[in-house]
């Protein structure tokens, strides 16, 4: 509260009550200058304002009789059905199975992609061998493999986790290799002239230097994982967030479908925040003051 007040105070101090032409210029500079860094409090307020505007727009349009309430429920209806889903319809177990699929598939993706990406980014010959192959696989849409995966793996979790894995792992390998490749040559040479062998330099320089980049890449690829989740759970699934949404569609429960979307959004955001926290906690040396 005090922070906000002092913000207002400085704001007023900087903006005179009677703006002349020159001072009006200053006011717009205050609001919109390039490369500005703004106080954390203001950032929070602005972020909340964006959300508030969105919810307001949704509420207003839902009351305007553009579509029947059944097909276009407002935010209040969606939140109450969300509550109902969790409290009465056992939605929590759906969420648990979705999150489990994401976590397992992504963990496997990291275990596969990290060593390959590290080696590709470190050694040009490994890169030349694998980059054309894996780079091409990136462009094959994972959902196109659903018929094959259904025949090979059935309709169980294995098929779904494999689909999620296929959607992410090729991108992950290429991106982790890119991160590794950005290790400054001079750091590698420094380690060489200190007597470091190949294995030592691989771990204590290339891997260690790339670690923050790896975490950031994983954060971004996890978002892709969530998009594949719905596709995986729409096909022949009995549980999970996507399966719930398909069930709701059969009975035209649009509010439940929207509640599912909201749930996915919130979960995605939570994972994003989690990764950002890891990043900040684990890499304190990446101070913002990189002068």
């Amino acid at each position: 509260m005090t922070a906000k007040l002092s913000d207002k105070a400085t704001q007023q101090a900087m903006i005179p009550a009677t703006p002349t032409g020159k001072q009006r210029q200053k006011r717009s500079d205050y609001w919109f200058d390039f490369n500005q860094s703004i106080p954390a409090g203001q950032r929070l307020v602005l972020g909340a304002a964006g959300w508030a505007a969105f919810l307001l727009l949704w509420q207003v349009t839902s009351q305007m009789d553009l579509a029947p309430d059944r097909l276009y429920p407002g935010p209040a209806a969606v939140f109450s059905s969300l509550q109902e889903l969790f409290l009465e319809k056992g939605f929590f177990s759906d969420v648990v199975s979705s999150v489990t699929r994401i976590v397992i598939s992504f963990a496997i993706a990291i275990v596969i992609a990290l060593p390959i990406g590290l080696l590709m980014g470190s050694f040009a010959r490994v890169d030349s061998l694998l980059n054309p192959l894996l780079g091409a696989w990136r462009y094959l849409p994972a959902p196109a493999f659903i018929p094959l995966l259904l025949m090979w793996l059935g309709t169980g979790d294995t098929q779904k986790i494999t689909l999620l894995l296929m959607g992410v792992v090729f991108f992950l390998v290429i991106m982790l290799a890119d991160v590794t490749r950005q290790t400054p040559r001079v750091l590698i040479e420094t380690a060489k002239t200190l007597g470091g062998g190949r294995r030592i330099i691989l771990w204590t320089v290339l891997f260690r230097h790339s670690l923050p980049g790896y975490v950031d890449t994983c954060r971004q690829m996890l978002a892709v994982s969530w998009t594949y989740l719905v596709i995986a759970e729409i096909v022949a699934a009995t549980d999970g967030i996507g399966a719930m949404m398909m069930r709701a569609k059969r009975f035209v429960h649009v509010d439940d479908i929207m509640a599912g979307i909201v749930t996915i959004g919130v979960l995605g955001l939570l994972f994003d925040v989690l990764f950002r926290l890891i990043y900040r906690k684990c890499f304190p040396y990446l101070g913002r003051a990189q002068s």
Binding site: P184, V186, L187, E189, T190, A191, K192, T193, L194, G195, T204, V205, R208, H209, L211, F283, Y285, L286
Partner: peptide, 27 residues
């Protein structure tokens, strides 16, 4: 390259993830 010939580069090549003490101890 080998431990018998240490090199100081023009860019100040410290390992950014290591403290000063750990940088000096690295070799």
């Amino acid at each position: 390259p080998g431990r018998d010939r240490g090199m100081v580069f023009q860019d100040y090549t410290s390992f950014p993830w290591l403290s000063v003490r750990s940088n000096v101890a690295y070799g």
